[in-house]
Nucleic acid binder design. Sequence first.
DNA 1: TCCAGGTATGACAGCGCTGTCAAGCGTTGC
DNA 2: GCAACGCTTGACAGCGCTGTCATACCTGGA
Lengths: 343, 343
Amino acid sequence: MTLDDVAAQAGVSAKTVSRVVNGERSVRPDTRQRVLRAIEQLDYRPNLLARGLSGSHAYTIGLVYDNPNAYYIIAMQQGALTACDALNFGLQMRPCDSTVPGLAEDLRDFVHRSRLSGLVLTTPVSERQATLRKLAAYRIPFVRIVSAAKSPHDGIPCVYVDDRDAAYAITAHLLQLGHVRIGFLRGGKQHHASAERLQGYQDALRHYGVTLRKELMIEGDYVFDDGFRGARRLFELAEPPTAIFGCNDEIAAGALAAAQSTGLHVPYDVSIAGFEDSPFSRHSWPPLTTARQRADVIVERATRMLIARIRGEHVDNESFNPELVVRGSTAPPRPKSRRRKRG
Amino acid sequence: MTLDDVAAQAGVSAKTVSRVVNGERSVRPDTRQRVLRAIEQLDYRPNLLARGLSGSHAYTIGLVYDNPNAYYIIAMQQGALTACDALNFGLQMRPCDSTVPGLAEDLRDFVHRSRLSGLVLTTPVSERQATLRKLAAYRIPFVRIVSAAKSPHDGIPCVYVDDRDAAYAITAHLLQLGHVRIGFLRGGKQHHASAERLQGYQDALRHYGVTLRKELMIEGDYVFDDGFRGARRLFELAEPPTAIFGCNDEIAAGALAAAQSTGLHVPYDVSIAGFEDSPFSRHSWPPLTTARQRADVIVERATRMLIARIRGEHVDNESFNPELVVRGSTAPPRPKSRRRKRG
DNA sequence: TCCAGGTATGACAGCGCTGTCAAGCGTTGC
DNA sequence: GCAACGCTTGACAGCGCTGTCATACCTGGA
């Protein structure tokens, strides 16, 4: 099945079919209808290789990520693939280190060598302003996914995720259970999302009239080991927290391991909450209370936005809200008199 | 940089350069050298789109998998990508359900629609003999990765992994620690690897003169929940095992959670071992003793074999051995008198 | 010396599509 | 009624490579 077959069937030229396939505007509605019917009848799908070879770009987008989490990567890839398949685009995965200097130049070369149509930038790459500015200057179309409570007004299209609100919800959940001393294990300082989650945590405490305590907020990275060490430090405090909020599920898994290694029972001695709804959070014991992030859906939207933009259509920013998922790792605090060490 | 540029630089025709790039034999050694030098000088890389459009296949391979484990998928993808990048091939990921009827036909259509050059088949797809036979009959080039103690002699090229030997090593490790009652949580009946691991477990017991006990071997799937349930059943036996060997890390993680939910201390009350060396095994508490499988390296080899085959070169089967990794989840059994439930 | 038969190389078409440019057509304004 | 304009459509070249086929070259045996 080629353009010519469709053209013959519809009684138009191949070029007109090409116009319809690419969503160009200068086609009369009735002509467009005829072509679309022919495409459907013949089950025509454009040949990516030919389009890419002939056109000014390869009809393929790049998904740029700097994230060690396999589940996240798979989910993002899945979402991007869904959008690309539906819109007849190809996909290239592009891991990178968001902290290296010259990242914008690397990405530019990547785009040019493969003649990519555009990029979807995920966090934390999407938060490096200098890189964004350069990519824009290189005239590379991109859409970014960022953590923000409301739509950024810098004119660069994006999908934004309200981490702050979700972190507020988790903290409020703990407060409503009766916890007052709530530890916060921060991770991924290079991720703006981590600042947003901290902010949500602090907002909730303030809103419930609970004093913020520096010793309960511990810095680290988005990794298991930092969750483990951070939680250990919290447990060693004169007055340890009765609940811990890990900035993502991996940190929370580390905190869970730390509790178990210390002989503390979760959730009776200490409640633990994560963020992400990764399989970690379901495959631990007890399973983790967390915030569900649909990375696949978010990336799919971002990909669709990017392709629309490449086609010269107008696109508006979109927002997503993570959703609280309560599981067995959070419970009311044990009355002080009955709290004890075990093990 | 195009073939013509290289041709001009080397003083030959574009076609000859094409022959060198594709490793064809009918090029005089000195001509080949000249061309290779020109390629290097100009840093020429063939254009995948053009090759695919022009040639009889798309210079792209498909990686076929039926595996829910994200880490595995990422590792395999990474390996395949390394090989494809080095050899100027494209990669398409292809998840599937290995149990559906008509899988061979689906794969054939997938290959034909994208004009793929060949397939790398991973377990358990690679173990479905009928599917393999059909793919061979369709003249689709493929290489498979299977679990086997020695090279299969069916003439279909493969990379084989000795799961049996690795399972033997893990069981022997437990036996040497002094365990006699060792539970085995089997998973993934549709995977031949699972039978091989069971075999390795049984071989080790026999070799150490320990009687096999049916009630200690529990069937399930490669999932957390079955590990959890299976371990629970083992703990409820009149004489529960002092060690549990989970058929993969996810099962072992389930067993670990079951132990913790039952108040058993790992490894003092019960030892637990997994298989795979997934991040699960490092991010649990205690970290799991397991067998390291380099899925990335294995798939990279398989991909290189496939491409060699596509180019008409001769390829031999290759083998890999997983490697025992001892961590904190295994220890000598606690003397009976001192064993106790904790609550 | 010549020719058969193999080996090494090149000329050329064409893969399926898009970019460019030109032409056709209907509409508007004077 | 006619020029001028915008909208819609089509003809055609060519993207970079490989498949096919023809040709040049080389070897050894008669």
